[in-house]
Write a protein that binds this DNA or RNA. Structure first.
Lengths: 189, 189
DNA sequence: AGCATTTCTTGATTTTTGTCAAGAGCAAGC
DNA sequence: GCTTGCTCTTGACAAAAATCAAGAAATGCT
């Protein structure tokens, strides 16, 4: 079973037969460090799954880059408003390292629904799960200090701090790079 | 057409016949100021639609109330993780004023899917829309100061500031009540 | 109306975080 | 191996926001 199949099974809980049908629509695509999976303003008609490598989703706000999320193995990358609602893309999605993604375009994606009758239901459940994760993220900003947010992310995923330029993590945590640097020093004791 | 029907049509874009089928599952329930629609830890098997009044969703974190959202006419109120995934509720949902809600329990909710074949698809679209709204909210915390967040909410919905205790709005915006008070004074010039 | 309670404002102060600037450390490419 | 960038750290300072405390204003209740 490939990584992709493993994750689809975990996320969507389908049987082996459906699993193979679904995953067969995804095609492997390699990205070099710096390549864009998606650029703001363009129309995105594809969904990616990170097999290896690190991918950053960010947007320019007042001439500054704001990193919304950093995806590693096992994450889907997509601009949902663009993929689902055919709007122009809000996020830039860029490979931070060389990457292997499994990619599906919206034309093929629609075919999944024809093959798997319960697909819309499974999609709903998956997006609902994503929603609750984002709810938590909002709550973190309402209730935690920069230091607490740093510690939480660090405890959740230490490796990230060796693999990703810290300025991006700082942005994703909603603090300046200097603050992250100081909190890091402080936590290291 | 009732408010509920109007909003269902706007959100889900169904025809008149389906609209009536869907809305007929919702039952009007009145809540007195202070009543709880849902309490943390309980199991929630109902979804509400705010017809009149104001409803607050909040949670205790380290003995402090954190207000996640304040809903007025036209909003759905629900603990999604509880309603969809049968987990115990994460949020308290309380009437800030006397309220009329249209309420549906999960048993009846499931019947909608039997009556409207496209329902899972429509649900998916609705939750996806909610997801993109939350994405924006996260971005606001990554890129805006307390003052900018205050101004944005005030410009978006001025009435809220006359109807809701400001301490709740402050919490929802991720700042102390004192800071909100000062920003408010400053913006009033 | 009058009292009690809650909510809001204000000032003083502290803490947290951001900004600016300089330099150190690293890595990529020639 | 040596530039050339890029990234990270550090210090000094400024700005933003939190906290604490006191009182004013509004609200609810009887």
């Amino acid at each position: 079973m490939t990584e992709l199949e493993k994750y689809i099974q975990t996320y969507f809980g389908v049987n082996n037969e459906d699993l193979i049908k679904i995953s067969s629509f995804f095609k492997p695509v390699t990205f070099k460090k710096g390549d864009y999976f998606l650029k703001t303003g363009r129309h995105s008609d594809r969904l990616g799954f990170v097999q290896t490598g690190i991918v950053r989703e960010f947007v320019y706000i007042k001439d500054k880059e704001v990193t919304k999320w950093i995806s590693t193995k096992g994450y889907f990358v997509v601009d949902l408003s663009s993929f689902v609602f055919q709007q122009s893309a809000r996020w830039n999605i860029q490979a931070l390292t060389d990457c292997e993604l499994y990619v599906i375009d919206s034309k093929d994606y629609k075919k999944i629904g024809q093959v798997i009758p319960r697909w819309a239901e499974l999609e709903k459940l998956f997006i609902a799960k994503c929603f609750t994760v984002l709810e938590d993220r909002v709550l973190q900003h309402l209730s935690m200090t920069a230091e607490e947010r740093y510690n939480q992310l660090f405890n959740f995923n230490k490796e990230l701090f060796n693999q990703v330029p810290l300025q991006y993590l700082a942005s994703m945590l909603g603090m300046s790079p200097e603050t992250l640097s100081r909190l890091r020093k402080k936590a290291a004791g």
